[in-house]
Amino acid sequence: MQYSRESTAYDLSKFERKPERKPQMQVIKGRKEKKKSNAVPIIKAFFAAVIVIGITSLMIINRITLTEIGEDINDANANLEILQSENTRLNVELEGKMSLKNIEDKAKNELGLTKMNNYQVQYLSLTEGDKIEITEPKSGGGILSTITGWFDKIKEYLGS
């Protein structure tokens, strides 16, 4: 092992308090101190007040608009209820007028109609049966009429 010749003692000078340095003041002549303008805070306050008043005005206008819309909705709902009750009344009146008894009374009293009796009924008999009649094409005319007949049959077949 090798020994060091250095001192193993602590350096206590690192822990001592150092004298505080006082800032040196310099006096400069010729410069005047700038006066702070009092207008800047006043302008800021003015714009802040304008913004607050603007937002408050918008909120009031919004509330007024919502109130008016709510009143319109309430009026429309009241009209809807009135119209629904009128519709119900008219449906009941229609059902009363369309009843079978009222129709029968009107037919007897106003139109003078009576119920049908058996002697007023007439029956028709249609029992002759079904008949199919086939007409024969007229022969004669030659080859040209035969070819025309074939074309007519083809048109008839394709048409139906």
Rank of each mutant, 00 (worst) to 15 (best):
T114W: 02
A78L: 11
L113M: 14
S125G: 05
T114V: 09
S85L: 11
G70P: 00
E110I: 10
L58M: 13
I154R: 04
S13A: 07
D75W: 03
E81C: 01
G149Q: 04
N62D: 08
M1F: 11
L124S: 10
M25G: 03
T146A: 13
N118F: 11
Y3M: 06
S13N: 15
S160M: 05
D130S: 14
I154H: 05
L80V: 08
V40W: 03
L100R: 12
I154M: 06
K131L: 10
Q24Y: 01
E128L: 10
K108D: 07
T8S: 06
S160F: 04
F46A: 11
K29H: 11
K14C: 03
R21P: 01
R21A: 10
E81L: 10
R31V: 14
V40F: 09
N91S: 15
L58W: 07
A78D: 11
N117K: 15
Y3V: 11
I103C: 07
F47A: 03
A107H: 04
M1G: 12
E86I: 08
L12N: 05
T67V: 08
N91Y: 06
I61W: 08
I51H: 01
N109C: 02
D75M: 07
P23H: 05
K101C: 00
E95R: 11
N87I: 12
L158K: 08
R21G: 02
Q2S: 13
Y3T: 06
I69Y: 08
K153F: 09
E86L: 09
K36R: 12
E6N: 09
T56I: 12
R31I: 13
N91P: 00
I82H: 05
I53D: 00
E133F: 12
I43F: 04
L100N: 10
Q84L: 09
M98L: 15
Q122H: 14
S7V: 01
Y123V: 14
K131D: 06
T65L: 11
I134A: 06
A76G: 06
G129A: 02
A49V: 03
T56C: 10
L80D: 05
G140A: 02
L144Y: 04
K115M: 12
K97F: 09
D152C: 02
E33Q: 09
K115D: 14
N62A: 14
I61D: 07
K153L: 12
D130I: 14
E6Q: 11
G159A: 15
K35E: 09
R63Y: 15
F47L: 14
R63F: 15
I134E: 03
E95P: 00
P41E: 05
E110K: 12
I55Q: 01
Q84H: 03
T114Y: 03
I43H: 03
I28T: 10
G30T: 01
E156H: 09
D72P: 00
G54L: 11
I28S: 05
Y3N: 08
M59Y: 06
K29N: 12
D130R: 12
L83E: 13
M98D: 11
A78P: 00
D152W: 04
I43N: 02
T148Q: 09
L113G: 02
E156W: 06
Q122L: 15
Y10P: 05
A49K: 05
T135K: 13
L58H: 02
S99G: 07
N79K: 12
I43C: 02
D72G: 14
D152Y: 06
E110F: 07
D72M: 15
K29I: 06
Q84Y: 04
Q84E: 14
V40Q: 04
Q84T: 01
K32F: 10
F47R: 04
V50T: 12
S160R: 09
R31D: 05
